[in-house]
Design a protein around this nucleic acid. Sequence first.
DNA 1: TTGACAGGACACCGTTTGGTGTCTTATTCT
DNA 2: AGAATAAGACACCAAACGGTGTCCTGTCAA
Lengths: 103, 103
Amino acid sequence: MRDVYSAVADPTRRRLLHLLADADELPLHEMTARFRVGRTAVTKHLAVLKEAGLVIDRKAGRETRYHLNAAPLREIQEWVSFYERFWTERIDHLKVLLEEENL
Amino acid sequence: MRDVYSAVADPTRRRLLHLLADADELPLHEMTARFRVGRTAVTKHLAVLKEAGLVIDRKAGRETRYHLNAAPLREIQEWVSFYERFWTERIDHLKVLLEEENL
DNA sequence: TTGACAGGACACCGTTTGGTGTCTTATTCT
DNA sequence: AGAATAAGACACCAAACGGTGTCCTGTCAA
């Protein structure tokens, strides 16, 4: 099983997730058509996403269809939400208030 | 400048960010002490974080002190929040409701 | 002033990554 | 039945990555 952070680190893989977000289910060749890179490369990216649990694939005739599974992204959301307080501008005001309180 | 997603993809770099979140400012040697890897490796990781704008460094005497700058993480938060609706269980109920409405 | 400490700057190395091309198999269409 | 399409399975490659060790230069303290 693969780390969800590194799965999402690649821009091509993020684009793949976005395509799947709009389409519910897509066959490999249809996705490949929207990229400059070849089929083999796209297959590899989808394999990485699958290892991270971000996509589910099933065979339908001669094509392999992929489906989004966003659940593992929760880990990233929770992780990043921890840092939320650091970019809120209110933090500066709070700092001042706390300093005043300590005096 | 470096992609914030790939900057955060490495677990060691995420740990570095967490250390800085607790400490406001830390010199290199103090961070190195908390890792198994050597100083050179830690320096490289901090360089990556700096390229992504996630840390700010300044020289103080013979030590280099690092400070967290979480702002670039907003991009990740916004990106991941787009997928939030996919893991909310209410989405299933909404789907059913929309289907009923279309009939 | 001499030694210890902090860290920049390299050179180096094995592994992973993102990509290619080719061959083969299974499925669909005519 | 025969052609075309979809995709798995390899082998291969250059570049990036994460790490090391070594050398050199400032800076602080005895």
